[in-house]
């Protein structure tokens, strides 16, 4: 009796969820469809499926890649995301271990400063950050990596030191007794234990750095575009006319790596969201 009722509820729920899932997917499906249509038909009839008259094959993708320097922007975004994430994960896990283990007021104050930086909106430091970064010569594609290290360290140190505190002291004390120096001890003993959390935190960072628009726009400008900057420029349109076909193709190309990334690292992404949450 109750079993049958449960089955009916499940069927009803599934139907409801299917409709909602379709609504969630619709905007993305629409962009994919329109990326194969001639630019003239995109804003005029966005819901029409491509037909023999409007279908242009890969033309938009070729135009999008060629015209706006999108391929270069793509490479730059990959470089910045990967480089920053590596710096963040190595730098911050070392820092987190030190801060979680060292005694005294200074490490404590440092830790609090890192945590404090998480709630400060970017607009608070936007103008002065651009100035300071220019002064010290970090306004290049390579120079932006340490900027991301600094700006992302709040969240990263916060999550990682939370984890370090759950590692028993005995583990590293045993290693030190055996004569391992701090560096050896860290990379041979501590870092392997931290790895799942380190992967999680890397994914969280990769997601926001890949999508970040304002920081690269202000620091690198429009000559050295990243993907979000390229898309914003393409949208504003050169000489007042936007190539919607190329734009649709760029949007699809910007989304593909994220989806691929998600499919590979789904488990870690989900645990990353939860890890970021429970420690909050």
């Amino acid at each position: 009796m109750t079993h049958r009722r449960e089955k009916r509820t499940n069927r009803l729920l599934t139907a409801l969820l299917l409709v909602l899932a379709l609504v969630f997917l619709l905007p993305v499906i629409l962009v994919v469809l329109n990326s194969f249509k001639s630019r003239l038909y995109i804003s005029a009839a966005p819901f029409a499926l491509p037909d023999t008259e409007t279908f242009v094959g890969w033309e938009n993708y070729l135009n999008g890649l060629r015209s706006a320097g999108f391929a270069a922007a793509f490479g730059r975004s990959v470089f910045i995301t990967v480089g920053s994430v590596l710096l963040l994960v190595v730098g911050c896990s070392m820092t987190s271990w030190y801060l979680a283990r060292a005694k005294g007021w200074f490490p404590k104050v440092l830790y609090l400063l890192f945590v404090f930086s998480m709630i400060v909106p970017f607009q608070m430091v936007m103008y002065t950050l651009t100035y300071v970064v220019g002064q010290v010569g970090l306004d290049t594609v390579v120079g932006i990596l340490p900027v991301y290290l600094g700006f992302g360290s709040g969240l990263t140190v916060f999550i990682l030191s939370g984890f370090v505190r759950s590692i028993p002291h005995e583990l590293e004390e045993a290693a030190m007794m055996d004569g391992a120096g701090p560096l050896q001890c860290f990379f041979r003993v501590i870092f392997p234990v931290m790895r799942p959390t380190a992967v999680t935190v890397s994914i969280l960072n990769a997601m926001w750095i890949w999508n970040d628009y304002l920081l690269p726009y202000l620091i690198l400008g429009t000559d050295q575009k990243t993907v979000p900057v390229a898309i914003q420029i393409a949208m504003q349109g050169a000489y007042g006319s936007t190539d919607y076909g190329g734009l649709m193709a760029m949007l699809v190309l910007a989304i593909i790596p994220i989806i691929a990334f998600y499919l590979v690292g789904q488990k870690y992404i989900i645990s990353g969201v939860v890890a970021g949450a429970v420690k909050g």
Partner: peptide, 29 residues
């Protein structure tokens, strides 16, 4: 005790980046 001497290796790089990207801009702001 030995561990504290390693501050420049473990903390300083991150702290330097944090100072340039956050602490100084925040104070200046």
């Amino acid at each position: 005790k030995r561990f504290y001497r390693w501050f420049p290796v473990f903390v300083l790089p991150t702290l330097a980046a944090f100072t340039v990207a956050f602490l100084i801009p925040f104070g200046m702001g």
